[in-house]
Structures are given as structure tokens and as C-alpha cells.
Design a protein around this nucleic acid. Sequence first.
DNA 1: GCTTCAATGGACTATTTGGTCCGATGCAAG
DNA 2: CTTGCATCGGACCAAATAGTCCATTGAAGC
Lengths: 218, 218
Amino acid sequence: MSDEQVAAPTNRRRISQRGIATRERILDAANRLMLVRGVNATTLDDIREASQTSKSQLYHHFADKQELVRALVKYRGALVLQRERAGLERLRSFSGLVRWRNALVQANSLNNGKHGCGLGSMALELSDQDEQARSSLSETFEAWEKLISDGLHRMRDSGLLRQDADPEKLSTGLMAALQGGYLLANAAHDVAPMEVALDMALEHIKSFLVQPSGESTH
Amino acid sequence: MSDEQVAAPTNRRRISQRGIATRERILDAANRLMLVRGVNATTLDDIREASQTSKSQLYHHFADKQELVRALVKYRGALVLQRERAGLERLRSFSGLVRWRNALVQANSLNNGKHGCGLGSMALELSDQDEQARSSLSETFEAWEKLISDGLHRMRDSGLLRQDADPEKLSTGLMAALQGGYLLANAAHDVAPMEVALDMALEHIKSFLVQPSGESTH
DNA sequence: GCTTCAATGGACTATTTGGTCCGATGCAAG
DNA sequence: CTTGCATCGGACCAAATAGTCCATTGAAGC
């Protein structure tokens, strides 16, 4: 998945720049609306209006609503991975993990925990009703976890983490804490539970550091 | 919130047993259907059919769909708390926590991680669109966490946990791990991530035990 | 037994919403 | 310029769905 053209269509003959731009507008509008209202509660007319397009355009670029949703899953997944790659690809120390944590917490605190994680909310809403969407979301989570575990591997290889640390399990645990934190923060409309959850996961990772430092997670 | 009559209506004059039974059937059907399809994707006709009732009964017992959903939030919350109370009110040891973990994992593995937690999925779907539902769900999560933290308090008072252990934070972290685990397991259609997440949280709690034992979490 | 009202069956309505269609327009190639 | 096709506007359609209404039934109190 490349960093550019995250909205590029799969295959069709002769696609103009104007068409690509429209498709991008539609996906962007769907992305914003479905983040706050949820997938099923967002109508095509909502998207049409927000994207300044027409019904025929929606159906020119997407076969039906389900296909639009599936495209959105990939679109949002690419955006998240792009953002996360920027914050994780150079991860080499525990303090880097803390900075990553702080960025997520700060972003979520801006809206008092509302909306949660765009991927997590879609996962719960779609996993039981669209196998393709579920599969795609699952792959995105795996890729996201891999960004973390790669960093942990680097930390282990450089001697920061003990050899018995399991980067894969640690990253899965951290991702679960993040997603659960998003969920509880969303329900409470307060970012606090997310902080507690992430700090727990970070403390756990910290316990695998070779030289436990007094470094705070705050 | 009492253990019995979880479906009892709020207030109305002269309510017959038959009426209560019908209300219960409706809520039970809504509970089952909305767990697998989600709230917004479940129609009143679905519920009417599954509950063997009629349109007039739905609107006799509930003002509209939103009220039915709000009643379901309380209904499901009461059911979960009832179940969790049974498993947590006698919690006094780390092995009790492990048994609790195993019960949740086993239940979720029966359907390969599908559906997730009934409260968590509702939380993400409703928190941004129904303030009353969100508030109710938030209270339920708090009550659930309190069942855990009460147990941790007992463990701390009895000298099992160190004095610097914070039962409230630990229970919030554990709940986040549980909810995140449910979410990832649902996306992966595999209970494994939920196990990893819960084990991480339990390891973290274990690190606060006064006498670290070799007790396995598996 | 009579009265009263909760409870019920189910047809019916209004609105929302996903989806279709066709003529118009813009753009690029020959 | 002309032709072909992607793109577009928006009216229109059909199905789904929330919600209404009224006649009927059943049960509890007098």
C-alpha cells in the first residue's frame, strides 16, 4: 500500500484526474461522517451532500453502499497506517513509545474521548455483517501491530529489551489496551481511561527493559 | 439495580404479568438480534417476528425505537452485571482472577471471537448518537470495574497485593484489556488476541503481588 | 356477571433511503 | 471540428422501515 493515492480506484479503463478527485471527495466525506455517526447511521444522501456530488456520481464510482463502505475501510486503514508509520518507524527507545502514547492521548482528548478509533468502531460494527470488511480491518490491525512489534524488535536487538520479551505479544497487548482505552474513553466521554489503559501496557513493556529506569510514563 | 425483574418497566398504572412477560420477550429478542446485527441494522420487524409479538405491542411497551434501545442498554447491562457479580463477588485471590479470565475466554472462543462484548459494541455504536444510552453504558462499565476493584481491594487488605497497588487503575486497565481483546478477537474472528490482552493485564496485576508465585495464567 | 382497561392483531400510512435512468456536459484523442 | 466516453445533475422509482390506528380479546376488580 503506497503512501500516495490512497483513494485510487481498483480498476477501470480511462480514469480522468477529475474522476479521481471526485472519488476522493466522496471517500473523504464518508470518512468524516461515518466516524461520528457510524456506518449504518450514515445515509448516501448525507455523503452526497457533504461531498458536493450527485447520486449518479456515487454510483459511478462505487457499485453500491457496501462497496463504498469496503473502499472506506481500506481508505481509512491506509490513512491510519500512514500516520502511524510516521510515528513508529523510528521507534528505538522506551521514551519513543511514551511520545507515541502522548500523541494519541492528546489527539483523543481534543474531543473528550468522542468517536474513538476509526478502525475499532468500524471493526465492531462491520465484523459480523461483512466478511470482506472484517478481513480488511483485521489485516490493517495486523499491519499496525507490526509497526509496533518492529520497533520492539529493534529495541530487543539493541539490548534495550530482554531476550525473553515477545514483541508480537507485547504489541498485541498494547493494541488491545489502546482499543479498549478508546472504547472506554468514548463511553465515558473522558480520555482518562485511555491513559490508564495505555500506561498499564507501557508499564508491562517497561518490565521487560534490561535496565529499569525511573523514567515516568507521564 | 436488583437481580430480578431486569425487564421491569419504569412506571405505568396497572401492569399485568402478561404484559411484563411480553415486554421481556421483546427485550430478549432485541438483545439477541442486536448482539449479532448491531443496533442500527436491526429493524423493528425483525424484533417483532423474533419475539412473536405485533407492532402494537412494541409501541404499547416502548414509546419508539430509541426508547427500546435505551431499555435494552439497561437490560443488557443488568444481565452482564448479574453474571459478573456471580463470578467476581467472591474474588479473593489471583487464581480467582485467572478463573474469571478463563471463563470469559472460553465463552468467547465458542463463537471464534464473533459478536464481541454486548456492552462494548453498543458503546461504540451509541455513544456518539444517544447521550442517555452513553451515560447508562458508562455507569454499567463503572459498576463492572467496581466489581473487579472490590476484589482487588480485598486482596490488598488481606495482604496479597502490595499497598502501592491501585485497585481502581488496575481494574480500569483490566477492563480496557478485556474490551480491546474482545474487539481484536472480533476483527480477527479468533479468540487469541483476547487471551494475549487479558494475560498482559493479569501479568501486570501479578507484578503487584506480595509474594510472586510461579502460578501460570494458562 | 359486568365493567374497565391493559393487551393484542394486523392493516395501514408516511418517510426515509438505497438504487436507477437518461439527458447534458466536459475532456481528450484522431 | 468531430467523435467517443468518462463524468455529472437530478428527477424518479421501489423497497424498507418507523410509526399510527382501531377493532378485538382477556383478565382483574367490583
